[in-house]
Simulated assay, not measured.
Amino acid sequence: MDAFRELHRLITGYQVSQAVHVAATLGLSDLLADGPRSVAELADATRTDARSLRRLMRGLVAVGLYVDTGDDRFANTELGDAFRNDAPRSVAGWARFVGRPFHWQAYASLEHSVRTGETGFAAVHGMSLWGYLAEHPDEQNVFDDAMTALSRAVADAVVDAYDFGRFGTVVDVGGGRGLLLSAVLSRYPSVEGVLFDRPDVAAGAHQLLAAAGVAQRCKVIGGSFFEAVPAGGDVYVLKAVIHDWSDAESVEILRTCRRAMSASGRLLLVEQLLDLSPDPVRTALSDLTMLVVAGGQERTTDEYRSLLSASGFDLTRTFATASDVFVIEAAPTQ
């Protein structure tokens, strides 16, 4: 290994992140979906400066997203094609989020978080991520798009790994726009669903659920999971929720779920696991994002076991999926 080159690649990784963010924001992969286009055509479609756009395209060619076909024309590579918004597991929504100034500025406070243990986001913006999103609805939409993109990347793997068909009603707590729940309901036509999230977030779920053809079997309810969640479900699913919160806040959320459940109910946490991750780099960096942005953390299996125990649950089984998340099943302590 050439240590200098590898270190240089690590140091300049932020440049790649921003270039890919801009590609997603401009929708370049979508514009190239039907074949090569010239820089002039792309600049006209995106209302950008052609000379600057050419330089961006040169950088994106270097990292493998696009290919220069000659005559100042560019086309998608296989990677670029997968970056289209309509690709099966597109993460373009995530790319649009991570480069937004409010998120980017927070990450610049990583050193502050390491030195103090405080969340960098609050140090920069004077409030939590959730408070900021509530005050900035445009950024809330970007964030919701990002969470939907991440759900799209793992939803099929989760439904493949766990049998939801034995339940009558699935309650998706903090379910965003309902991508995961729609995958469950599409796979199991006899199952009913309840989508629960903050009112402003839950309101955006109707369109996705209708497009999936499951709206008639799914209630959408707004509220706070710190106060109460809908009662009567057979299984309660929290995907990428608990990792956003501190231990104390996580126990509070889990106890709220426990109060809504019967003794025969089940709780499912869909999370990455530090001790079992098939992609340790991604999971470790996600943990840093929790430190800097949300104030939570990624955890080990035993750490989740402890949280669940403190909340009135016993961890019963852990299911690996074909993605980097696990389904952690828990039952009320008897």
Rank of each mutant, 00 (worst) to 15 (best):
A108C: 13
R177A: 14
D324Q: 09
P101F: 04
D71H: 10
V201R: 06
T119S: 13
M290Y: 09
L110K: 12
G193M: 06
D279S: 13
V292D: 06
Q297V: 08
E139A: 14
Y107I: 12
C218T: 15
H243F: 10
R317S: 12
L7M: 08
L7A: 15
R152I: 14
G93Q: 04
T148V: 11
A310V: 01
F313R: 00
Y132K: 06
A330T: 07
Q140F: 08
P137D: 07
D279Q: 14
K219I: 01
D138F: 03
Q297C: 13
T283A: 15
T256I: 05
R255S: 11
R217K: 05
T283I: 11
V142A: 14
N85P: 02
D275W: 07
V184N: 01
A322F: 04
A331D: 06
A95L: 13
H206N: 04
G99H: 01
T119L: 05
A122M: 10
R166F: 03
L307S: 07
G312F: 00
A134T: 15
F4P: 08
V67C: 10
G168W: 00
G93N: 04
Y236R: 00
L288I: 14
R152L: 15
R266G: 00
D279H: 11
S182N: 09
F313N: 03
G176P: 06
F143R: 02
P137S: 04
S311G: 06
N141F: 10
A157M: 04
V327K: 00
Q334G: 14
V67Q: 15
S246N: 04
A210V: 07
G295E: 09
K219T: 10
Q18V: 07
D200M: 10
T69R: 10
A106G: 15
R198T: 12
A284E: 12
V20Y: 02
G213N: 03
G174A: 07
E41P: 03
V251L: 04
A212M: 08
G131A: 08
G296H: 02
G168I: 07
S52C: 09
D145N: 11
L179G: 06
A19W: 08
L268D: 01
L53P: 09
P280R: 02
A3T: 15
V39Y: 00
S309V: 05
R299S: 14
Q334F: 02
G165C: 10
Q216K: 10
V191G: 08
V16E: 13
A40W: 00
F97L: 15
L133T: 07
A106L: 08
E118V: 09
R73D: 08
D144I: 14
S113Q: 04
F313P: 06
D287K: 05
V281K: 02
V91N: 03
T46C: 04
E139M: 11
L180I: 08
R266E: 08
V39T: 15
Q272K: 12
N141V: 13
G175L: 04
T333M: 03
V229F: 02
Q15Y: 05
A149Y: 01
P280S: 10
G80V: 11
A284K: 03
D81N: 10
V67H: 07
D144L: 13
Y236S: 00
E252G: 12
G165H: 05
S109P: 03
R259S: 13
F121Y: 12
V173Y: 02
F102L: 07
T316V: 12
A211Y: 02
V292H: 01
G13P: 04
R177K: 05
Y132Q: 13
